[in-house]
Design a binder for these strands. Structure first.
Lengths: 223, 223, 223, 223
DNA sequence: TATGAATGAGCCTTCATTCAT
DNA sequence: TATGAATGAAGGCTCATTCAT
C-alpha cells in the first residue's frame, strides 16, 4: 500500500539523479536547465522541486554520490583482507588506490570535469560524515583502516589526506583534460613521489631522522 | 589628435577592467551582468563589445592580471640581488614567496575566491607566455632565476612548479575561506613541508641519496 | 460515533479558518497559498477542498465572520436595555458604536487592511441575511432596534446605514493606515459630524425644516 | 535625430499604457500578465521593463491618469468663467461635477471597477502633487478655485474633499455595479444630500447656526 | 473522509547581443 | 568609435487542482 508509493518516489528521485548526471556530464551544470532534467527524467517540472531544493542541492548530492562510487570501485577490486595487501607499505597502498581512481577518471573525463569544477572539501566532508546518501560507502573508514594498519605512526592523518586529495585532484584535472603542463602518464611519477613525500612528512616513527630537521624551520622566519 | 583618441580608448578599456573586477569580487562572476559592468564603468552597453568578446574573455584577462600582480607584490619587497637572498636555500626562497602570496590572499579573500574559482592553468600559462597584458610582470623569469641560482640541479622544474602551484592553490582555498579541514595558519607547517618534499624529489645532485630509492618505484607495479 | 466524526470535521474546518485568517492577516491574501493554509492547519492539501471551494470562498466566510465579531464586540459592552442608553439620542448611539469599532481597528490594523481590501457590500449583506456562519451575531437586528427606539422617524434606514458604513469604512482605511490626509483622531470630529448630518437628512419629523429645502433640489437640474 | 528616438520611445510607452488599460478593464489586473500587455502592445516582453518597474507601477500611473481624465471631462463641459456657474452655490457646483463623474462611470463600468479596486488616496494625492503624468490636469486647482469662489468660508477644505471623495467612490461602486443596496439613481438624492451636509459642516460663516451646536459634541464623551 | 504526490501551465524577470542612429 | 533601445529566448519557480490510494 504505502510501500508502493514509497517505491514510486524512490524511482522518481533516482530517475532525476540519473538523468541530471547525464546532462551535467554532457552539457555542463550551467547549460542544463531544470526543465531539461525533468523532461529527460520523464517527470513534470514541478516534481523536481518535490525532491530537491534547487540545482545546487541536486549537484551536491550527485557529486558526493559519484565521488563515493569512485572510491568504491577503486577499493572494491583489492582484497583488503589479503595478506599481500596487508604487507604492502602504507605509502604504496595510498598510491595504488589513487592510481585506480586516476585511471577511472582518465576513462571518464566528463566525470572528472564535473567533479573538479564542483567538488568542495567542505561539502564533501559534510556529506561523508552525515552519510547523505545512505547507500554510499563509508570510505573515510577505509583510510582509517589503512592508517591503523600502517607499520608506523602518522601525525594529523586528516590533514595529510586533505593535502593529498587537493594535490591529486587539482593536478590531474589539468593533466588529464588538457595535457598541461604534461600528460597524466608523464606526471604520475612526480605526483606519486610527491605523495610519498607528504606521507613521509607525517610519519612520527623515530627512525625517520631527516624530517626532524624540517620541523625546526617549518615556516619562513618572518612568520 | 590620434593620440588623444588612443588615450581615450585605453581609458575606456581600463575603466571596464577596473569596474568589472570590483563587481566580480563583490558579487561574483555569475551575478555580474555586462550591463552592470558597463554602467559602473560609465560607458554604454554596446561599448563593452568594442573591447571584449564577452564576459569570459574579460574574466580571463582579469585573472591573469591579478595573479600577475600577486606575484609582483610578493617579489617586489625582496631584493633579489641581495646577498642574503642569494644565499638562502632555494626551498626557503620558494616558501618565502609563497608565504607572501598566501598572506596577501588571507588579507584579500574576495580575490582568492575569484581566482580560485576561475583560474585555469592552461589559460594562465598561455597568458604568461604571450604576455597578454603588456604591463604584467614576467614572473616565469623569476622562477627561472631562482632555479638557476639554486645550489643544486632540479629535474623538470616546470612540473615541479606546477605541482607546487596546484597543491598550494587548491589547499589554501579551503583553509583560508572555510577553515576546512583546519585554518590556514595551522596547515602552513604541513603545507610548507610538503613543498620542501616536492622540491627535494626534483633534486638531482648526487648527495641526495634518499630520493634515488623512490625513483625505482615511482609508480605502482601494475602500471 | 457519528458525533465524533462530525466533531472531527468541525475541528478541521475551524483549524482551516483560524489558520487561514492568521496567514491572511500577516502575509495577505495574495501571498498565502492553499498549501500554506493546509500546512499551518495541520491537514493535507486535498482536505482543504473538502471544506471550501477555493481561497475566495474561504475569504468571504472569514470576512463576514470577522466583521460580525467586530460589531459584536462593539455592542457587547453597552447594555442596550440600560435606561441611559435608551435615552441617548439615536445619532449619538450610532457614533458610540462606530467609535468602538474604529478604536478596535486602530488596535488591529492588520484586520482593517484585510477587511477593507476584501469586503464587498454585496457579499456582506448576503452573509448577514443568510447567517452563513451560524454562530455569528445578527447585528442587523441591533440597528433595527436602535432605529425603532429613535425618538424620530427615519426614511430609508437601510440606505442611511449603507451610506454611513461606506463613508466610515473607506475613510478610516486611509486615515488609520496611512494618516492620509490626516490621522484618525484628527478626522474623527469631521467624520462624526458627517454621520450626524447624514442621519439628519433621513429624519422625517416635521421639526426638521431645513432639510425640506434640500429635498426640492436633490439632484442637479440636468438630471 | 535624437528626436526620432525620443518620439519612438513615447510611442512605445503609450502603446503599453493604452493596451494595458484595455486588458485591465477587460480581464482585470490579476488576470493580465505582462506577457499579455507586451504582446497586445506589439513590443517584446523585455521592453515592458524599460518603461515600468512592474505591473503595480504601471497600474498606479494608469489609475492616476484615468482618474485625471475623468475629472477633466467632468469639468471640460462647464465653462468655469461663465457667470451662471460663478453664481451657482458651491454645494451645487460640487454636486454638478460629481454627477458628471458618476454618469461617466455608469457608462463605463469597467473603468469604475478598475479604479475602485485600485485607487489609494495616498498614491492619488502623491500623483497629483507630483504631476506624475505631465499632461494630466491639475484638478486640485479646480477645487481650490471653487473653494475660493464660494460665497462663504470653509474650514479644512482638504478633509472635506477627502470625506466627499471617499463617500462617493465607495458608495457608487456598490450601487452602480451591483445595485446594492439600491441602484445608483435611487441613491443619488441621498448621496447628494449627504454631500451637502458634509459641506455645510465645514462652513464657518456665522449665519450657519445649526452647526455650532454640533461642534460642541463632536465626539462621544468617552473620547 | 483524508492524504499528499504529481502535474504542467504560466508567471516574472534577466540578459547577452544586435543595430540603427 | 559610441550609444542605448529593443529584442525574445530562456530560466527558475509557484501553485491550484486532481486523483489514486
Amino acid at each position: 500500500m504505502g510501500g508502493k508509493v514509497q517505491q514510486n518516489k524512490k524511482q522518481k528521485k533516482e530517475a532525476l539523479l540519473e538523468n541530471a548526471l547525464e546532462l551535467f556530464l554532457s552539457k555542463g551544470l550551467q547549460d542544463t536547465s531544470i526543465a531539461d532534467i525533468a523532461k529527460k527524467a520523464g517527470v513534470a517540472k514541478g516534481t523536481f522541486y518535490l525532491y530537491f531544493k534547487d540545482k545546487i542541492d541536486l549537484r551536491n548530492i550527485l557529486i558526493a554520490h559519484e565521488a563515493s562510487k569512485l572510491f568504491e570501485k577503486a577499493t572494491a577490486k583489492l582484497d583488503v583482507e589479503d595478506e599481500d595487501w596487508k604487507n604492502t607499505d602504507f605509502e604504496e597502498q595510498m598510491i595504488i588506490v589513487i592510481d585506480h581512481i586516476i585511471n577511472e577518471l582518465v576513462a571518464n573525463k566528463r566525470l572528472l570535469t564535473f567533479i573538479s569544477k564542483n567538488l568542495s572539501w567542505g561539502y564533501f566532508k559534510f556529506a561523508l560524515l552525515n552519510n547523505r546518501l545512505e547507500e554510499d560507502v563509508d570510505f573515510s573508514k577505509l583510510f582509517e583502516n589503512m592508517i591503523a594498519n600502517a607499520n608506523y605512526q602518522l601525525r594529523d592523518p586528516e590533514i595529510m589526506i586533505f593535502l593529498i586529495i587537493e594535490l591529486v585532484s587539482s593536478t590531474i584535472y589539468s593533466c588529464i583534460l588538457y595535457d598541461e603542463p604534461v600528460g597524466i602518464e608523464e606526471i604520475k611519477p612526480f605526483l606519486y613521489d610527491s605523495i610519498r613525500s607528504i606521507v613521509r612528512c607525517h610519519r612520527t616513527s623515530d627512525v625517520e631522522e631527516q624530517t626532524k630537521e624540517n620541523m625546526t624551520k617549518k615556516c619562513p622566519k618572518s612568520l
